[in-house]
Design a protein around this nucleic acid. Structure first.
Lengths: 144, 144
DNA sequence: ATCGAACCCCAGTTGAGAACCGGAGTATAC
DNA sequence: GTATACTCCGGTTCTCAACTGGGGTTCGAT
């Protein structure tokens, strides 16, 4: 429903990592932040979450940085979203709705979420990259 | 994604109105609020929004109250949600994303929203009522 | 060894928006 | 004409996202 800027930042960062995946050097926070115009201190927190979620790997020290943990086509968008929203949605976790009416409403809502998950499962980081490249080609066409 | 309590309240109220649709007397705010355990002053605002959205009709004066504007099976959940979130989502309305990357991300998100809408289009208030009744039957069965 | 970068644990701020409360006004059935 | 119930408008309270910042620790390449 809502594209929080947290999610957007994370996806942009992953997209950036995906497009540099074939390179030897890891990407540093500053580079990603500068490229995608994201506050670096905030991005640091997001990348930490993604790392704990097993989506990216980090390398310390000079020439360190971040790399995708897997190939871009093996990372579904759903994984990224789940990883980031995981900490939020455990408090309300399955407290039985008091009334039948509320139960019905939440039931429908669960169905909505299921359909969201289905869509997000279809897309991988690679798909995002491809889409971006296609768009860039279009932009060039318009330019001429 | 998130079931705000605003939405939940509104759906519960609509559900209540739907189940009393066949009756002659309109339902009053207090009745709905008491039945569904919703702060009445807040519910008042929500019902006002729904009324402006053409989903319900109000009758003033003694013995006044609210009635559905149409039959319960002619009101999709999507309409209700749209009506309530309408005021929120017009500021960001189609401001072109600055970068190609952001454009791609929001594009995917639009697809997600489309699938959400599809689900919410399938359900009508009548469906909610039916589901509730089915659940009640189940509860009775368990009770025995 | 030393520098650069990731990592960690905070703690605080700021702004927006959700949820709710209250009063005074207005319409309408009886 | 009065009680009832909707209506308008404003204000409060509280939570949370989105940052910002400090201060330190651990690695790894050079």
């Amino acid at each position: 429903m809502e594209l929080s800027c947290k999610l957007e930042y994370a996806l942009l960062a992953l997209l950036e990592l995906a497009s540099h995946y074939s390179e030897a050097e890891p990407l540093q926070i500053r580079q990603i932040a500068a490229e995608q115009n994201i506050p670096d201190r905030y991005l640091e927190q997001l990348l930490a979450t993604l790392r704990r979620g097993g989506l990216i790997k980090s390398q310390r020290g000079a020439k360190g940085g971040y790399v995708l943990a897997r190939e871009p086509w093996k990372i579904q968008l759903l994984e990224a979203i789940r990883c980031l929203e995981g900490s939020e949605a455990e408090a309300s976790d399955e407290i039985a709705p008091k009334t039948v009416e509320r139960a019905v409403v939440t039931e429908v809502w669960q169905e909505v979420n299921r359909s969201v998950d289905e869509v997000l499962q279809q897309y991988t980081l690679q798909d995002l990259c491809d889409r971006r490249d296609a768009r860039r080609q279009l932009d060039i066409m318009y330019y001429i």
